[in-house]
Design a protein around this nucleic acid. Sequence first.
DNA 1: TTGAAAGCGCTAACAG
DNA 2: CTGTTAGCGCTTTCAA
Lengths: 341, 341
Amino acid sequence: MPRSGTAPGEAGNVSISAVARQAGVSVATVSRVLNGQAVVKAETRDKVMAAVDALGYRMNHLARNLRTAASRLLLTMVPDVGNPFYAEIVRGIDSVARQQGYFVLLCDTGADPGRERSYFDLLRTRRADGAICLDPDTVQQALAEEAAPLPWVACCEFDPEAAVPYVGIDNRAAAREAVQHLLARGHHRIALINSDERFLYARQRRQGYRDALTDAGLRLHPEWQVNVRSLDFAAGAEAAAWLMALPEPPSAIFAVSDTLAIGVLRGLRDAGRRVPDDVAVIGFDDIALAAQVDPPLTTVAQPMRELGETAARLLLQRLAEPGVAVPGMLLPHRLICRASA
Amino acid sequence: MPRSGTAPGEAGNVSISAVARQAGVSVATVSRVLNGQAVVKAETRDKVMAAVDALGYRMNHLARNLRTAASRLLLTMVPDVGNPFYAEIVRGIDSVARQQGYFVLLCDTGADPGRERSYFDLLRTRRADGAICLDPDTVQQALAEEAAPLPWVACCEFDPEAAVPYVGIDNRAAAREAVQHLLARGHHRIALINSDERFLYARQRRQGYRDALTDAGLRLHPEWQVNVRSLDFAAGAEAAAWLMALPEPPSAIFAVSDTLAIGVLRGLRDAGRRVPDDVAVIGFDDIALAAQVDPPLTTVAQPMRELGETAARLLLQRLAEPGVAVPGMLLPHRLICRASA
DNA sequence: TTGAAAGCGCTAACAG
DNA sequence: CTGTTAGCGCTTTCAA
């Protein structure tokens, strides 16, 4: 017995025209029902919905997207998905995007311009509607020319000169406050463990560190300023070991990231120093782990979730009104005093 | 002066037909060149490429995908992107997918069936070619019926009965070994901090825990088996505090996840217990952080990267040969002895 | 080796 | 309120 039409189970091949046939209406009407257009008579709509159910119809979004030139996909490019700092921001992005009916595509670029470019291609070729970039401002700039007309926003890292909307914090001021906290505790020998200075935040926080020291009339000690190539625990531990091996080791350490600072705690322990008695430590970000380590980490909190939410909102706004300029904005940070400094 | 055609800068609107016109060939020929088909004469190909460059043409993948019914996108559904365990698996997936010319779309489901279903819809509507699911086997089962014909594989969590390809480890054996390690160190009062038993791994590790105790002729102590609702540090700390408040507290704790175990370390510290002298602790996963905490965590290592790579390979294989059955497979685990137990 | 033409499944004028 | 029709940008027979 030949089967007429497609059985409910084998969805995916059922098209809008099959539904139209089954319901005895035109494809246009089916489309209207599917898109919730009010003009359709209730009775007709019911017929259509019945056909949809009977056939197990699922819209082919590829086709819709081709037609509407929109994919309802948002890209989020991060240097490292494994970093808990980014994870929290991503949650913020995800929540507002989802709420607006967008899916977000998380991309791990490893801060590599090549990878980043390939993701921007998703935008360019309309497979995604917009993007949020958390990569170093330096790699953003490398793509600035070609990416300029594309709908994207920068988060945390940004080029203040560029016409790209952004959200971030005042890293320089935040770093200054962190170091001032150390100063207030009587420290004069303060080290900086900084990350890759391709990152804007790294350069800005270094500035803040210098501001504070200079304001206090202290001399900058070059060997107390170390740069590490990655943000993992091991890098922090190594840097701490190196600092402690100095003829004149610092009595306090400002690490530009909590992951680094937590590594520092370990490095200090291995070097036989007590925190904060021998050496005080202050981190940056306030990731969940910061409160869990021993001793609990004093750090500068970034509003991670809000950063993500704001970035998503800026992007959505830019998509909704392509014409109007979207502003850059800075969110407030906060010093969290725990036991490490 | 009216402009003829589209200027290089304003790509995105340049279609294949514009290229064809510019090159003086048909769209079919352009398509052949773009797809690297050998049949095209070298001279013609050069003309086409020149036109592509001149116009700054970028293929609209939406259109191609509609035609070829493939998106070159892979979904990866994880219960929590912020968990470092998943992050490493995702890296494994990403590396093999990228190598095969696929993009991977990371989806945070929060282990919520509704969210998961909406992501499966991306598959169903052909916006993604395949999916890798790391969500609890129980939520997988909830979707089993409708998702059965879709191209997806399970990673870490799976239903051995289902016809879905999977990769994971032998959780029961691994847990047994972990507890046996504690037993070998002379512990008899061993607690289990387990997570949400919607997860297969949670149920299997509980089994392994019981196996080891029973094999050793020990009685199971109900109050030493606690379940927590999340895998974060705080949950581990709380559970540890609760255990220590018991009239007869355990002398060793097996936590089914490193994040939990690290929380336990903190909880124990707060309760004034030394690790491992007062209480031994063993974790599970061997995330990077495990080696960094104080004391360094003894744990069961999962081959996270390989789990991801294998899952991706299984999926790609399933996509390449839809007919043939893809096997389920278990990867080896390994006990890592550090200082906490 | 190339071109013409027929769609992929959907939306949106435009008529009726 | 509903149907007809013309594409969205691409790939792929089928002919030439």
